[in-house]
Design a protein around this nucleic acid. Sequence first.
DNA 1: TATTGTTATACTCTATAACTATA
DNA 2: TATAGTTATAGAGTATAACAATA
Lengths: 160, 160
Amino acid sequence: MPRESAAKVPTPSSAISDTTLRQFTGYGMKRAFMVIQADVTRTLEPLDLRMVTFSALAIIGDNPGLSQTQLAGALAIERPNLVVIVDELERRDLVSRDRVPTDRRTYALQLTAEGRRLLVRATEALRTHEIRVMHGIGGADLATLIGCLSQIEAFEPGKS
Amino acid sequence: MPRESAAKVPTPSSAISDTTLRQFTGYGMKRAFMVIQADVTRTLEPLDLRMVTFSALAIIGDNPGLSQTQLAGALAIERPNLVVIVDELERRDLVSRDRVPTDRRTYALQLTAEGRRLLVRATEALRTHEIRVMHGIGGADLATLIGCLSQIEAFEPGKS
DNA sequence: TATTGTTATACTCTATAACTATA
DNA sequence: TATAGTTATAGAGTATAACAATA
């Protein structure tokens, strides 16, 4: 890949090199994730959902009755920030906050019927879109990709 | 994976399921990227660099003389937000803003000698850390991973 | 008229401390 | 005393409009 112009001259028009960053898989992950994120945002927009509100619905759907602290942990966000999210979902009648008799400090979160319907619609829309994004990737490669991601996610700074 | 408790009872202690989200490769990418991001942040901290300031140094190093508009494009951030970043790098004497005689509106960005030294140190530190994070992934799988990421990055909403 | 860098500003996300009510 | 949810607030990060200098 020869340099066409002398050193210290700005690259002709807009062909900027990122060779140094490209050596890092983490950089490729960021670039790829930005594409996915943009597609997810676009897909959820007509349903008036953001990535985090969709994720909240999905986690509540998988764990009916869980507490806000547990949900915050699953979403990896701070409890204070979760409050406004659950506020919005409750206001839109997608989620209910039910008092727990055995511990009146906590709420048991549930999807409402409308919450369940919206979760199903959003999940199907995202599945369709993800297939398009991953379209060029073969089945075996996709399995390898998922395995690699799990491996990375399992990394702990302390070990090794 | 049988449910141990009756429906609508909070999950015992803290074993929250994310089955619905796990079907999406994008979710796995986000989780994996969060781990990488945390490691990168920790690695760059002693060098007083953030992800974005390191990336700026790397792009300037690969494209000496480029303009701030070009750098903003390469980093995918808005021009106004880049100004404060370049301000900081210039104040720390890592980057120079040189006037271009042929177009006195633009600056030609260059790494200083100290900027080059810091870039090398940071790149080596990150390389070591990335090897640890990717440690469990075989060579062939890593190549597949990188290929998949490129494929995803190349996705365009319009096509297909 | 268009573009580069800049300022001001606003909006979202995220993070922390402190409060209340319960345990 | 400790915990769940909440409030207030501050700090990042990100986005847009508008300006001065220059083309």
